[in-house]
Nucleic acid binder design. Structure first.
Lengths: 153, 153
DNA sequence: CCGACCCCTGCAATAATATGCATTATGGGT
DNA sequence: ACCCATAATGCATATTATTGCAGGGGTCGG
């Protein structure tokens, strides 16, 4: 009887198959050892704000936050985007600040994430500035040189 | 008796106010000189793929393109929002980098702010990454463990 | 003008969801 | 360990949505 875990289970189910009614969901949950009534599911779905969307093939439940997932496109290579957007780079301790032309921060930040470099703890991109958190000051220096090299083409 | 125009009228109504039932929508349409039964509206809403999203204040109809809107509304509880979006966590010194699924950074950052934890100096959220500035490396470790625990449900 | 064939709609029956109330679990505080 | 306050749940039922069916217009080809 753990509501939070059950919510998670519900998300996984409605995210991976077509669920058209709360009764149907109840059966699917039952197969996964969750045993609750339709009433509870009605309340769960409200708390989770799961919407019921009618379609020609019948209604289906959809998590609002997963609706934009279809928009996800192909990954971008850092070698392609950085020379195109690069403006300047600087940093202190384990922080690296990379500036790009306007609008370039997001794609570049994404490309850096995708590169999967071990020196990188994480990146945050605004409009034209990216903050890169590095694992150490030494890692920052390594990364700074690498990015500069890539930026030059 | 023009279905297309009626659909447009429906879009305008549900886009400009809260509509909680088809009967309610029927009355509103009636005030705008559209006279149809609830049955017809059920069919219209299906053709338009208008979803019904339950909320604490009662159900409401939302156009598909606005479906994600309510997701981050007042669900500021970190326990609710983190398991849903969590991807990974890492950090250095007093910086903690939390990664989420795409689009999850904002709501989670907001939830962390709302939690009011003393270890947190501040947060910055991008698209799928949150930078959490902690009060000290020790605070960072404490927070990292706590968030990991919450993320697991 | 007449049918044949649509699509659209209302009506009424059926299916699905939401909720008031009573009961049981859960988490603090002492 | 006990008690209280709060939250979670099931049951029965109210509310809401969906749908099978039949009728009303349109349109097109004869």
């Amino acid at each position: 009887m753990n509501k939070r875990e059950r919510h998670q289970a519900i998300r996984e189910i409605i995210g991976s198959r077509v669920v058209g009614s709360q009764e149907e969901l109840r059966v699917l949950l039952h197969e996964a050892q969750w045993d609750v009534t339709q009433s509870t599911l009605s309340r769960d779905l409200r708390e989770m704000r799961v919407a019921r969307m009618p379609t020609p093939e019948g209604p289906r439940y959809v998590s609002p936050e997963h609706l934009g997932d279809g928009a996800a496109d192909d990954r971008t290579l850092i070698e392609e985007v950085l020379p195109q957007f690069f403006s300047s780079i600087d940093g202190v301790t384990e922080l690296l600040v990379l500036k790009t032309i306007y609008g370039g921060a997001q794609p570049v930040a994404e490309a850096i994430d995708d590169a999967g470099w071990k020196e990188v703890v994480g990146t945050i991109g605004g409009e034209n500035t990216i903050l890169i958190v590095c694992r150490s000051p030494a890692a920052r220096e390594t990364l700074e040189k690498r990015l500069l090299k890539i930026a030059e083409g």
